[in-house]
């Protein structure tokens, strides 16, 4: 019995070497497999929710992300909405927009952005819209995050 245990133990020790080799040789394919099997994604709190609509303007576009209320167990009462304006080159000196983020046909807020100073002003129309969390520089454009209440 102890001999069998030793044989198994030494086999496992040699297996550690094979695992080390497999880790490096198969890193990319294992990584892809891991992502596809588990279905993991990067948290929308980090990079914004999925894009739900794009409004085309002359020279630039407004990208509206899904409002994010995701919590650990259930949705949160307070969430975040990200709006991007790209590309940087096409942005006017003053972006002035009425946005309907929930696509119910009614405008939800009025936002004015100065892309140069990266400062924005907000006028909430829908009571769910609370305030501007911050304005950020993107690789090729500007973004603003707004805090929202859940319905």
């Amino acid at each position: 019995m102890s001999r069998l245990k030793s044989v198994l133990a030494y086999t496992a020790a040699v297996l550690a070497l094979l695992i080390a080799l497999a880790t490096f040789t198969g890193m990319d394919s294992f990584g892809r497999k891991l992502v596809s099997v588990t279905g993991i994604k990067v948290s929308p709190w980090m990079i914004g929710g999925e894009v739900v609509s794009v409004i085309e303007h002359e020279g630039y576009q407004t990208v509206i992300h899904r409002p994010v209320f995701d919590g650990l167990f259930s949705e949160r009462k307070k969430g975040m909405l990200q709006i991007d304006w790209t590309p940087q080159q096409g942005l006017p000196a003053r972006v002035d927009e009425l946005i309907d983020f929930d696509r119910d046909g009614k405008d939800d807020f009025h936002i004015v952005l100065n892309p140069e100073s990266n400062k924005a002003g907000l006028e909430a129309i829908n009571p769910r819209v609370v305030s501007i969390e911050g304005c950020y520089t993107l690789k090729d454009g500007r973004a603003a995050r707004l805090s929202l209440y859940h319905d």
């Binding site: 919590g71 650990l72 167990f73 259930s74 949160r76 009462k77």
Partner: peptide, 9 residues
């Protein structure tokens, strides 16, 4: 409805 949030806090 709010229990999970309370638990979180």
């Amino acid at each position: 409805a709010s229990g999970t949030a309370c638990l979180a806090y």
